[in-house]
Amino acid sequence: MVESVLQVLSWVFLLTGGVFGIIGGIGLLRFPDFYTRLHAAGITDTLCALLIMAGLIIQAGLGLASLKLALILLFLLFTAPTATHALAHAAMVDGVEPELADGSDDPQSGEH
């Protein structure tokens, strides 16, 4: 009973993680400018990875493997948003301007 519940739960995690990965990929291809694309990629980095790792931890059961997976998850939760932040910051420092809906090229984020 518990076994099958865990199986179902783990597959739900894995599949939703995969769906988020696909959504992130579509966003990466279809969004108009750098920052929105980064937003899409950021979702893949955090939510998708988190869900897939959670699913894998349930699959692995209690043990050394699941502990290692949990550690990987912990590191991903630190490094992936940092990488996204570093990318966005580097783009801003380099003067990449976000595309605005009203077409004006005057974001206040350029220099501050």
Binding site: F75, F78, T79, T82, H85, A86, H89, A90, V93, D94, G95
Partner: peptide, 23 residues
Amino acid sequence: PCRRTGERRMRENGILRVIARFV
């Protein structure tokens, strides 16, 4: 044009420094 200052501003980024110190 602003590679030098760009580098400096990346280096002064607090988040990167803190996370790097942790990682």
